[in-house]
């Protein structure tokens, strides 16, 4: 149902930019999303982290909105769910902090630190990066929805 609607909207030539832009965007959006998650997941090992990766995630959705029109982006991820993901990211961060309280300190790094420079290491830091990434990605996308809320009315005579 949702897939059919998206397909219909994508093929509508009146929505979004030209076919060239749409074709290029269709490939790059997936790559940008992948790169965003890479930056988040390797946040504790390489430069970057939750905030930078979250911004890249938001950029992917913003590109979708620019290339394919606002309506398709809102079908993919509505403002309601963007807000929910935003809150869940922050909630996850605070809950991890509270769990650390059980081990003696607020935000205590209670997980095993693992071997340095391997992907699963550094205890809670990758989890915190992930929650920040989700929060920032959803929040920036929601801000972009808010900024693009105004449009131009198309009068009947113009058509």
């Amino acid at each position: 149902m949702k897939k059919e609607k998206i397909k219909e909207l994508i093929e509508d030539p009146n929505l979004g930019m030209t076919l060239i832009v749409k074709t290029v965007a269709r490939i790059t959006i997936a790559l940008i999303l992948l790169y965003g998650f890479y930056i988040i997941i390797y946040g504790h090992l390489t430069p970057g982290g939750g905030f930078a990766g979250g911004v890249i995630l938001a950029i992917a959705y913003t590109l979708m909105m620019l290339a394919f029109s606002r309506r398709i982006a809102l079908v993919k991820l509505s403002d309601f769910w963007a807000s929910i993901w935003d809150n869940i990211g922050m909630l996850a961060f605070i809950v991890i902090g509270f769990v650390g309280l059980g081990f003696g300190y607020f935000l205590f790094n209670f997980l095993s630190k693992g071997k340095p420079f391997s992907l699963i290491s550094a205890g809670i830091i990758p989890l915190l990066n992930l929650s920040i990434g989700i929060k920032i990605g959803a929040a920036l996308y929601a801000i972009f929805i808010g900024l693009s809320i105004y449009g131009r009315l198309v009068l009947e005579e113009e058509e």
Binding site: L91, I94, L101, F106
Partner: peptide, 26 residues
Amino acid sequence: MGNIAMPLTVAIPMLFAVLILVTGKF
């Protein structure tokens, strides 16, 4: 080590703020 109530005065209002935002949608 200090008193545990100190970080809680900051963490509890933040936790409740987010809880209100999540459940407030429904």
